[in-house]
Design a protein around this nucleic acid. Structure first.
Lengths: 257, 257
DNA sequence: CGTTACAGTGAACACTGTTCGGCAACTGAA
DNA sequence: TTCAGTTGCCGAACAGTGTTCACTGTAACG
């Protein structure tokens, strides 16, 4: 993400289905009262330590040094908490000002930044996947992406799908990344007390497995074993992204492969 | 999916991380003993009735007319059960014999069939998303897709990513579809006792919401409101798919837009 | 001092996945 | 026919989940 950014626009009115949250405390704080922010902070700490499956309200409460029921004064449910975590990811994620000449790089930058944001917290892609990005805080981002596509000259129908397509790709890719990592960690934890997930080892094991398949039934899988499972996820991510970008570019009036 | 199909090839040796399941009963059944098949059947019934969140081992047991603990004789965990459900979806899903002339239609057919399979059971996309498709039963499918891409003439690196890219797209798209449907159902259930999820109504509501956004901050979102939320998911699915296909085609030696 | 307001508590409820000791019915052998 | 032995299933239990609610203590105000 470069610095050619527009600040987040004024927030729109809430979506029709927006969840109503308990109103924030009205009086001056006694000491350091529990706030929505602090609950979300604690939730992120627990998430990074124990993963999404270990993220229970009890753990969050313990992390915040508070009773479970206290959480429900600032958050209406666990679902709501997850939504707040999802929304926070977007905070400070500035969107590009559309530049028709550089739309591909802008989309690439956007996608890469978003991926790294997802990678910054364990299991974050799973949380992201579970949310339609049409809540009020996120609409500016959808708008900005649309702006990039439309000013680039894409037909409306294509532009309307492009955002969804790319978001889905990013979320899905990072989700899968996380699953591989989890499996590697699990396997490493099994066979040795060294819990360090040895990624390369797992990749090698997978390649060996592919190479061991019967040549007759799986010629292509065998041939591409080295490419299917690689330790360079960055590269794979860029390739998939490039495929999508090329597809989008094919809809531009002037053919600029 | 047309009839130009190859039967499922011989099943490969199990992946390194394959879960070991309890061996099936060895003696002749007394009456109509509980089988792995019947457990999965019951699970699908519960899934369609109550959704993934309502799919508990207790419910499955009740549906099968059996105690909870009996399930664990045929399935090693709930995760294992979900994996079996996922694998069953692929059963009877025949793969195309690669035809370089028709690779686009073949991929299109494949994608559409897979989407409809996912739509056939509630929340199935969520289950699908949670699994890497590299378990032994599914490798033939990966191989078949790879075959289509490679015989079409795509470079290896591109072919290796293409399968993942398309799977991710399908799963993600259907997942989102399901989320909208759930929301529509929830909203309809809220405002009227008629639990029938009125899809068009929700789409209209969304469009109104987009149209109500301030013109200054959300010009593009307003302009494309009609295209972003449409009741014809089929059309949207095909558009996204076409974008990907065009991107892939751009890597072919002979430019055949 | 008394009153009110309220953030935070702890116990409870109805669930969840999973395990384990035991029971009943069937098998094959004596 | 009787006696193991095995197998399929059951009930109860354990530790955990999200959520609610009557309750406390403390702080500020009149």
């Amino acid at each position: 993400m470069t610095d050619e950014t527009a600040g987040t626009p004024a927030s729109p009115p809430p979506s029709p289905w927006e969840r109503e949250r308990p109103a924030p405390a009205r009086v001056a704080p006694a000491r350091e009262p529990l706030s929505r922010e602090r609950v979300v902070d604690a939730a992120f700490t627990v998430l990074d330590r124990q993963g999404l499956d270990g993220l229970s309200m009890r753990q969050v409460a313990a992390e915040a040094g508070v009773a479970v029921s206290a959480l429900y004064a600032h958050v209406s449910s666990k679902d709501d908490l997850l939504e707040l975590m999802y929304a926070r990811l977007f905070a400070g994620f500035a969107m590009p000002v559309p530049d028709p000449e550089r739309w591909r790089e802008q989309v690439r930058d956007y996608a890469r930044s978003w991926r790294h944001l997802l990678l910054a917290h364990r299991d974050m892609a799973r949380i992201s996947m579970a949310h339609v990005p049409f809540t009020a805080e996120l609409l500016p981002h959808v708008e900005a992406l649309l702006a990039v596509f439309r000013t680039a000259g894409l037909p409306d129908r294509i532009a309307a799908e492009a955002g969804d397509l790319i978001s889905t790709y990013i979320d899905g890719f990072v989700l899968e990344e996380g699953m591989w990592r989890d499996r590697a960690a699990l396997q490493a934890g099994d066979k040795s007390s060294l819990a360090r997930p040895d990624w390369r080892e797992m990749a090698g094991e997978m390649q060996n497995y592919f190479a061991s398949l019967p040549e007759q039934d799986f010629p292509h899988l065998r041939a591409l074993a080295g490419l299917m499972v690689t330790d360079s996820a960055d590269e794979r991510f860029d390739i998939g992204l490039e495929i999508i970008l090329r597809g989008l570019a094919s809809y531009l009036p002037s053919p600029s492969v």
